[in-house]
């Protein structure tokens, strides 16, 4: 059996003086939602276009289930994608848009009605797509991606322009697609959007993947297993915990940071030794922190803060 999901290896692409991709490599596995995040201009969209065979690369390979895109016979049965929800003929109805796509894959019109229902567009399906809201166009784009019932799904900024209900629907939808065993790649420049959805994260910066790991691992790495302790008996507590093998450091008048012991074990030790304490909390980094940490160097464009606007 061929390799499942998407394997991107060493993509390099130059547009004139700009290096758009500089050795982009990552893997998208089935069964999980992989978030593809990074600042604007990091190469996310270019990578997706390369995966779909739309842009040629100077070096490297992008394979879908072990094959380059252009060798897929009915490509939409292998990978469904949404790059630009606005890329529609404004006077063609949603149903007809999906219909020509279905015909290009040798699919029947029945399948079109199924995906329209799946994304909840049935009532608007025969209206001209030009009159759709951005959220409806996103749903139509998702429907197009699902048309061939593909094992791999790739969406570029699917949360853009969606209302809160839409975002909640989209998250559940993506998780359910992954739960069916599909490989799902979702790009976004907002961490909060993929926070609760993605189990795996590829962080792009300056044309390469600067992180490619599980979300839990990334957070744990950023948190470093540290526990914050608030106590009035700082010296006593530090003695007890150091004796148990932890690394301790006083970080304020009443606060101590402990690493090397989980929080429950710390509570037990302190209680046994009758050390008074008012608060024990795991220091848990957010994905935002991870992202900030990782992309700090990779950000190419940073807006001036409002106070710095020159007069």
């Amino acid at each position: 059996m061929s390799a499942p999901g998407i394997v991107v290896a060493g993509l390099r692409k130059r547009y004139g003086a700009t290096l758009a991709l500089d050795g982009m490599s990552f893997t998208v596995r089935p069964g999980v939602v992989t978030g593809f995040v990074g600042p604007n201009g990091a190469g996310k969209s270019t990578t997706m276009r390369v995966i779909l065979g739309l842009d040629a690369v100077d070096e490297g390979t992008a394979l879908i289930e072990g094959k380059p895109y252009h060798s897929l016979r009915h490509p939409l049965s292998h990978v469904g994608s949404l790059l630009d929800a606005a890329a529609l003929h404004p006077s063609r109805s949603a149903r007809n848009h999906l219909l020509w796509l279905a015909h290009s894959q040798g699919l029947a019109a029945r399948r079109v009605d199924q995906v329209i229902e799946q994304v909840g567009l049935t009532s608007a399906a025969r209206r001209k797509a030009g009159g759709y809201s951005l959220g409806m166009r996103q749903r139509l784009g998702i429907a197009a991606a699902l048309l061939g019932d593909p094992p791999v799904i790739m969406l570029d900024e699917p949360f853009n322009g969606m209302d809160p209900d839409g975002i909640i629907w989209m998250r559940g939808f993506l998780r359910s697609l992954a739960a069916q065993g599909r490989a799902v790649l979702v790009s976004s420049h907002l961490m909060s959007e993929v926070q609760d959805t993605a189990a795996h994260l590829v962080v792009a910066g300056r044309g390469k993947a600067i992180a490619d790991a599980g979300v839990a691992d990334l957070i744990a790495a950023a948190s470093g297993g540290r526990v914050a302790l608030r106590t009035t008996a700082g010296a006593h507590a530090m003695r007890v915990l150091a004796h148990a093998g932890a690394t301790v450091a006083a970080t304020g008048r009443d606060t101590i940071t402990v690493s090397g012991l989980p929080a429950d074990r710390i509570v037990m030790l302190l209680s046994e030794s009758a050390v008074p304490f008012s608060e024990v909390s795991a220091h848990r980094a957010t994905l935002e922190d991870v992202y900030q940490e990782l992309t700090r160097e990779a950000v190419e464009f940073r807006a001036a803060t409002p106070t710095e606007v020159p007069r």
């Binding site: 779909l52 065979g53 739309l54 895109y69 252009h70 490509p75 890329a87 529609l88 290009s104 197009a144």
Partner: peptide
């Protein structure tokens, strides 16, 4: 040209990579 101006050419070429 109509497909180029709306961007739909990418959808077309994704569906028909040849």
């Amino acid at each position: 040209s109509g497909e180029y101006s709306s961007g739909m050419i990418r959808t077309t070429l994704t569906a028909m990579p040849h």
